[in-house]
């Protein structure tokens, strides 16, 4: 099922939350990230039907996100830490299942399935008020999953969860994606999203500044230098030879490593390979430094500023 933003603009009085956003989010995991105030939360609120667009339309399948019909197909894990504190985790998830219209028996069954998915079966009878932050995050996830919706919106789902828990939730989301669910995960921690998916929506100043896989996005930024680190035992000699390659902008010597910047990575790697072979350099390591999400996002933010 598709989650569609069609030329969506949202104003908060005179302030613009998101500005003419269009995208179609299909099955699989899509990471949504941006800095605080970039418009992530507005997008999440629009998609979950908490807000109505000032212009344009947000649809979940065929239904407008604001409508109750859309919410049959939607599971939302919000970025808040509020619950019915007096309930146990199991009761809370059960009530949420009942609020989706399930019978008592079905709701109980779906609750157990959802708790099992988030590894909370054993701890489900604790009062939410006494649960750790990580457990509360899991309960939030469980209530989003309980109706088995085809579209999942997860706002900062990894916040406050320990590394083991993050791995478990990552696996869970991958499993869900494999079942054909459309999952939109927002985060301001880039590594989180990067570790979950290749498919990224980057948002800055209320606009989607890039979408696609990280490498695709990186390739779009051909006006930004591409940084490569090469570790070799003849670093000084190799630096002297590399600086003669026309595609190389600069070479920096750091011990046995070289930091090379180029605008044309494709032809640079070809020439570099030729040089290594002809001069018999022993290369211990060669890695690109700025294809990571942080670097890409940094470039994009500079561009949108």
């Amino acid at each position: 099922m598709l989650l569609v933003f069609d030329r969506v603009t949202k104003f908060y009085g005179p302030v613009i939350g998101v500005n003419n956003i269009s995208c179609r989010i299909g099955p699989g995991i899509t990471g949504l990230f941006g800095a605080n105030g970039a418009g992530k939360s507005t997008m999440m609120k629009l998609a979950s039907g908490q807000l109505r667009p000032s212009q344009g339309e947000v649809r979940v399948g065929e239904d407008r996100a604001w409508s109750s019909a859309a919410k049959r197909n939607l599971g939302f894990s919000p970025d808040i830490n509020s619950f019915y504190e007096e309930m146990t985790g199991r009761e809370f998830v059960y009530v949420m299942a009942r609020l989706c219209g399930h019978t008592r028996r079905d709701a109980r069954r779906l609750t157990e399935i959802a708790l099992e998915e988030v590894d909370m079966v054993d701890r489900g009878d604790r009062r939410i008020g006494g649960c750790s932050h990580g457990m509360r995050q899991r309960i939030k996830l469980a209530q989003a999953l309980v109706n088995d919706p085809p579209v999942l919106l997860l706002d900062e789902p990894m916040t406050g969860i320990d590394p083991g828990g993050r791995r478990d939730i990552g696996r869970l989301l991958v499993r869900m994606a494999e079942r054909g669910k459309t999952i939109l995960v927002s985060s301001h921690i880039l590594n989180e999203v990067e570790s979950l998916t290749d498919s990224i929506l980057m948002i800055a100043a209320g606009r989607i500044v890039a979408s696609g896989t990280l490498s695709e996005v990186r390739n779009l930024l051909d006006d930004q230098p591409f940084t490569v680190e090469i570790t070799t035992d003849r670093a000084r000699e190799m630096a002297a030879r590399l600086i003669g390659i026309p595609e190389v902008l600069s070479v920096e010597l750091r011990g046995e490593s070289l930091i090379v910047r180029t605008l044309s990575p494709g032809s640079f790697f070809g020439r570099c390979a030729d040089l290594v072979l002809s001069e018999q350099f022993v290369v211990h390591r060669l890695q690109t430094l700025d294809t990571g999400a942080d670097a890409v996002f940094g470039y994009l933010q500079q561009g949108s500023a």
Binding site: G26, P27, D148, K181
Partner: peptide
């Protein structure tokens, strides 16, 4: 997957609210 072009619809089928009124009444 986020894309600028249409993506094939998911294989997942939305939960059917065939007896929509009954489900709504239960939820209410």
């Amino acid at each position: 997957m986020a894309s600028a072009t249409p993506t094939p619809a998911a294989a997942t089928v939305a939960p059917q609210f065939g007896a929509g009124g009954v489900r709504l009444f239960r939820a209410w």
